[in-house]
Nucleic acid binder design. Sequence first.
DNA 1: AATGAATGAGGCTTCATTCAT
DNA 2: CATGAATGAAGCCTCATTCAT
Lengths: 208, 208, 208, 208
Amino acid sequence: MMFLKFHSLDENKQQRILNAAIKVYVQKGYDLASTNEIVKEAGISKGLLFHYFQNKKTLYLYVFDYCMGLVVTDFYEKVDMQEPDFFERMRHINLVKMELLNRYPDLFRFLESAYLEMSSEIRPEFQERLKKFSESNTDQLFAHLDTSKFKNGLDIQKAIKSVLWTFEGFSAEVLGRAKAMQLDQPDYEAAYKEADAYIEMFKRCFYK
Amino acid sequence: MMFLKFHSLDENKQQRILNAAIKVYVQKGYDLASTNEIVKEAGISKGLLFHYFQNKKTLYLYVFDYCMGLVVTDFYEKVDMQEPDFFERMRHINLVKMELLNRYPDLFRFLESAYLEMSSEIRPEFQERLKKFSESNTDQLFAHLDTSKFKNGLDIQKAIKSVLWTFEGFSAEVLGRAKAMQLDQPDYEAAYKEADAYIEMFKRCFYK
Amino acid sequence: MMFLKFHSLDENKQQRILNAAIKVYVQKGYDLASTNEIVKEAGISKGLLFHYFQNKKTLYLYVFDYCMGLVVTDFYEKVDMQEPDFFERMRHINLVKMELLNRYPDLFRFLESAYLEMSSEIRPEFQERLKKFSESNTDQLFAHLDTSKFKNGLDIQKAIKSVLWTFEGFSAEVLGRAKAMQLDQPDYEAAYKEADAYIEMFKRCFYK
Amino acid sequence: MMFLKFHSLDENKQQRILNAAIKVYVQKGYDLASTNEIVKEAGISKGLLFHYFQNKKTLYLYVFDYCMGLVVTDFYEKVDMQEPDFFERMRHINLVKMELLNRYPDLFRFLESAYLEMSSEIRPEFQERLKKFSESNTDQLFAHLDTSKFKNGLDIQKAIKSVLWTFEGFSAEVLGRAKAMQLDQPDYEAAYKEADAYIEMFKRCFYK
DNA sequence: AATGAATGAGGCTTCATTCAT
DNA sequence: CATGAATGAAGCCTCATTCAT
C-alpha cells in the first residue's frame, strides 16, 4: 500500500530509522519530538524521512503499528490459550509480559508512552486503533475459561475486570517505583513474585 | 504571594480566564495548548495573560492548584472520615465523587488530563504536587479503618489497593463509554449503582 | 517648561525616581532597561512615570541632564580657572575629578555608561548634547593658559589634545583594572599618583 | 565545526547575509538589531538565518570573528615588524590602518561598534575574545623596539601608552568629524598627514 | 495625583514540510 | 534514491504606552 517504498529499503536502514523514531518519541512524546532529531539520530537526511513517510503523524502511526505488531505476535504465540483456569492464565500472561518487557524494552516503552499520548493531533486516529485492539484483546485473551470455580452468584465479568484493573494499576505502580528510584528498568523478577501474591489473594477470595 | 494581582481582578474575568485555560488545556494538552487560543477564548489580550501569569507553565500550575483546591476542599468536607468500615467508606467516597463530577465536570476533566500530562516541561514540578497530594490522599482517606472484618491472613494493603485500582479502572470505563456514546457526561446515577455492585462483590469476597 | 510637574513633586519621591532610573539604566543600558523595573525600584506606579515623563527617551535624557548638571556645576565650582599653567590646571582637574568620582559614584557611572550608549533610539538626540557640552568643556577648561612655557614651534593644540586623550585612556584603564579585579571602585588615591607621573612626563617633554 | 553549513553555502549568499548583519548591527547595536530586519535586508527567510546560526548571539559572534579575521590577517601581513624605531613603526601602522579603513569600511565600522557594545547578553563571551586579541595585539605590535633613543629616565611604558591613547583619541576625532560633516568616510589622506604631525611632535619631545 | 489593568506590536526561535539539485 | 537549503506560520514572551477609575 503506502509503505512499499519503505519496506523495499535496506533492512539495516529501516531499523535505524525505526529505532531513532522510537527513541525520540519515547523521550519527548509526539509533539515535542522533532523530525530534525529523528533524522539526526537515524543518520539520514531530512528529505528522506518525508520521502518514505508522508508526514510526522504517518511516521508515528507506522511506528506504533510496527511495535504493536511485533509485540502482539510474540505475545499470542507464547500465551497458552488452552489453560482453562482464569488465574493460571493470568499468571501465565504476567510471565509472558515480563519476558516481553525484558526482550523489547524500547518497544514497550514506546507503546506505553503511546498509550498515554495526549496530543490532539494524534489522538483521534489513535484511539481507533487502540479500541480495535483492546476489544479483541480482552475478548480473545479470556475466552473459553472454566468459570465453574468462581463462587456461586459472583458476577464473573466484574471479578475478571477487577483483576485486570488491579494488574493495570500494579504495572503502573511498578513502573512508577522504578522511575522514582531512577532505575532504567524495574526488577521484573520481584514484580512477578508480587503479582503472584495478588493472584493468590484473588484466587482465595473469588474462588469457592 | 504571586497571584495577588490575579485574585484582585474582577471575579467574572477571573472565571473567564480560568475557564478558557481549562478548556484549551483539556482539549490540547499542555504542549499544544497555545496561549493564543487561550486569550482568544477568554476574550483578553495576549499581554494581559502574561501580566497575571509569569508564563505558560505558571498558568498551568495555577489552574491545577485552583481545580485541585476546589475539588479537594469539597471532597474532604463531604467525606465522612468517621466511618470505620472500609467498604462503607468506599461507597461514600464514590457517592461524593459522583456529586463532584456532576458539579465540576470541567475541573474534573482538567484534573484527569493533568494526571496524564506527559510534557517534560510540566512533569517535574508537577510530580511533586501529585505526590504530596496522593500521599495525604490515600493515607488520610483510609486511616483508622476497622481491619478486623477482613478474612484472616489477607494482605490488607493489597486488598485495599485492588479495590482502589478497580475503581480507577471503572471510572475510566465509565468516562470512555460516555465518550463513545457522544454523551457530554456519563450517567452518574447508573454508574453509582454499578460501583455499588463492585463493592458488594468485594465485601462478600474479602470479608470473613 | 516640560518638567514642571516633576519638579513640583515631593523632593524625596523625585530622588527615588531618579535613583531608580540611574540604577537600572547603569545596570542594563538604555534598551534593556525596562520601565517596569524602574517603577518597581522607585516604588511608584507605571502610570505615574509616564505622567511625569512623556516616554522612556525623555526620562533618559532628563536623567542625563540632571547628572550632567550636578556634576558639571560642582566641577566648575571647584576647578581653579585662574591657574595659568596647563599642567598645574590639569593636575587640579584630575584631583577634582577624583573627588567627584568619590562623591557621586552612581552619577558618574551613569554618565560613563551614557557616553557609551549605542542605542539608535537615543543616539541622535544624545550626540547633540554631548557635542554642545564637550565643546564648551574643552574650550572653557583650557582658556587663558600661559602657553609660553611650551617648547618653541610646538603645535600647542595637538600637545594639549594628546594630554587629554592620554588621560581619557588612562581613566578607561583605571576603570578596566578595577573591573578586572572585581573592585566596586578603583583605588583613586593610587590612580591620582599615577596620573601625576604622566603629568611630570609630559611637563618634562613638552615644556622648554 | 559549527559553521560548515554556512561555509558550504553559495559565496554570494554568504556575503549577502554577512553584509546585512553587519549593516544592521552597526546601525542599531546588538540588542535593537532585529533578526527580522537582517533577513529582510539579506533577502532570505526567517528560518534560513536560524538554519545557519543557532541564534542571534551566535550570528553576532560569527560576524565579529569574520571581521576580525579578515582585518587582522591583512593587518599583520602588512605591518613591518622588523622596523626597530617606535615612531617609524607607529607611522607604518597608521598607514596600514588607513588602507584597511579604505578597503573594509563596513567591517571596521562593525568592529568599532562591537568594541563599544554594552549588551549584557553579548559582553561576557565577547570580552574574552577581545582580551585574547588585545593582549597579543599590543604585545606583539610593539615588541623588539629600540628603546635607546628615548630620553634618559623616561618611563617608556607610559610614553608608549600616551602615544597609543593619543591615536585612539585622534581616530575617534576623525570619525566624529566625518560623521558631523555627513561624509560617508573620513578623508583618510588628510588624516594620515595630521597623524604624522602628531608623530613628529612626539618624536621631537620623547626622543633625546 | 496616582494606580495598574489592558493593549498589541514586535522580538527570538522552532518546526514540519517542500523542492531544486 | 538522497540531500539539505529554504520557507513561513506559529509559538512564547516582553515592553512602552494608554486609559478608566
